[in-house]
Design a protein around this nucleic acid. Structure first.
Lengths: 147, 147
DNA sequence: GTCGCTGCAAAGTATTTGCATAGCC
DNA sequence: GGCTATGCAAATACTTTGCAGCGAC
């Protein structure tokens, strides 16, 4: 299945790479495709496993460097999960995350969020903010039930 | 120098340990003292170095397990700094952090912060929140100047 | 005297780096 | 053909774990 949005995302990546003087490689195209297909955050290892299906022998260092590049291009955001593992998110709009202390699972929280005040305060403190993330830590529904 | 607040913090720790059935050891007392003295977040290694002055041969695993215990007791909060290193903070009230992407330094941001909405939204989503943290990522003043 | 805490050593794991090769431009 | 990106392997660094001895209670 190839949706219109996937096609658009692909063109956008190619344009961004060209503008940067970077190369359009199959690894980058597939990793981007996987991220759009997933539509949620994932670990580097998880992404590599899914890439494997479409394109064998993609190394983890390549996945890391590609995701770092995507983050610079602004098409991916990264944050640290509960167990300290880095998660990569195709959603680039700021949204709060819930992190379970027991099972480590991170989920999105759909809630209106006003980070403008904190960003302004940061600027006032001489800091140059790029992004702001809100993380709520606690127990997810299933872990809380088991306790 | 031994202030009244340090004395209070010491008594509070001893009480909390007793209630828990835990033991009052010199390592625990000194680590608590160092944290109150510092008054700001620090890494496990940094804490160990400072503890060394008062009490030699304290191992890093002991520092980690003590800080984990303190977190359970609610007298310390931990969070991940920019480079993925865990920071331990004697301030237990929620307050935003600024993390520099270039030098990795984490600083407190003194700003009024309304996390109640997000916490309520998390509850509404079936999540049991314990704490919420806001992290603003970007460049600190000195790193932004150098760029 | 008992049982938890500590110190030491070693393991575990996510991520980064170096270098030779392959492949995009 | 030049130069970037990739793959492989190894290194790095933080944190956790196992186990024997010490010390609080």
């Amino acid at each position: 299945m190839t949706t219109a949005s996937e096609g658009t995302a692909k063109e956008a990546l190619i344009d961004a790479l060209r503008r940067r003087g970077g190369r359009v490689t199959s690894q980058r195209l597939v990793i981007n495709e996987i991220l759009r297909e997933l539509g949620r955050h994932a670990t580097a290892e998880e992404i590599r496993e899914r890439v494997e299906v479409h394109l064998p022998n993609v190394s983890l260092p390549t996945v890391y460097s590609t995701l770092e590049l995507f983050e610079e291009l602004g098409i991916v955001r990264s944050f640290r999960g509960g167990d300290g593992v880095t998660l990569y998110d195709p959603r680039t709009d700021p949204h709060p995350h819930l992190i379970c202390e027991s099972c480590g699972v991170a989920t999105d929280l759909e809630a209106p969020l006003d980070l403008a005040g904190a960003i302004e305060a940061a600027k006032g403190a001489g800091f140059s903010p790029r992004t702001a993330d809100l993380v709520v830590t606690g127990l997810c529904h299933s872990c809380a039930s088991q306790a």
